[in-house]
Amino acid sequence: FTMAAGGGAGNKTYSFKVVLLGEGCVGKTSLVLRYCENKFNDKHITTLQASFLTKKLNITGKRVNLAIWDTAGQERFHALGPIYYRDSNGAILVYDITDEDSFQKVKNWVKELRKMLGNEICLCIVGNKVDLEKERHVSVEEAEGYAESVGAKHYHTSAKLNKGIEELFLDLCKRMMETAQAEERAKGNGASQSTTSRRGVQIVDDDPQAATAAGGCCSSA
């Protein structure tokens, strides 16, 4: 009995949850709509809405199911962040390159995510609206430098011109898969350790707990 994805190792399906964060008006919704364009799953009751979207991918022979969770960007909803980003495998933090404040907002989110979820979440920082390059207020160097300093990747996109979006999601999926695989390996080791170290009356038994507490992905097929 396992909660993990079914099937043999070869035909495993990864299920990832990705949360979309960023100020209102930076284009989160258009970005994800672009990505999932014409690919709406008619099994979903709220088909054709942009708050919750899914996408199926096949990456190097592995099936990946993405669930993309949009969040409300207005300040008054900030406090609800945790209930949306918990259990996320990835986060896409969107700012508008013409809006310095929206970049500041991204920095706040990064801080919070790292504090709450540690390094188990893959972060993408996305400068949207590169079609408005002339009005840029956030410098490329600053944004990329910042991303690197916090262990995130930086991307430039334009929802309007459909630029950079496909790459962003593909890259994120690959990283989430790597994280999941590394975790599986770690878990495998942890399990074998705890069985071999089983002797007599064992009072302290938080090994398996620690191993699973590392969180993770692909919770179900």
Binding site: T29, L33, A50, T71, F77
Partner: peptide, 26 residues
């Protein structure tokens, strides 16, 4: 979900556009 769908339908019928969380949650 049916309730959510109904809310979306009303929003969309009046504007024709699709809404994300920025509009839906409020």
């Amino acid at each position: 979900l049916r309730v959510c769908k109904l809310i979306y339908t009303i929003m969309q019928d009046n504007s024709g556009r699709m809404y994300g969380a920025d509009d839906f949650l409020p």
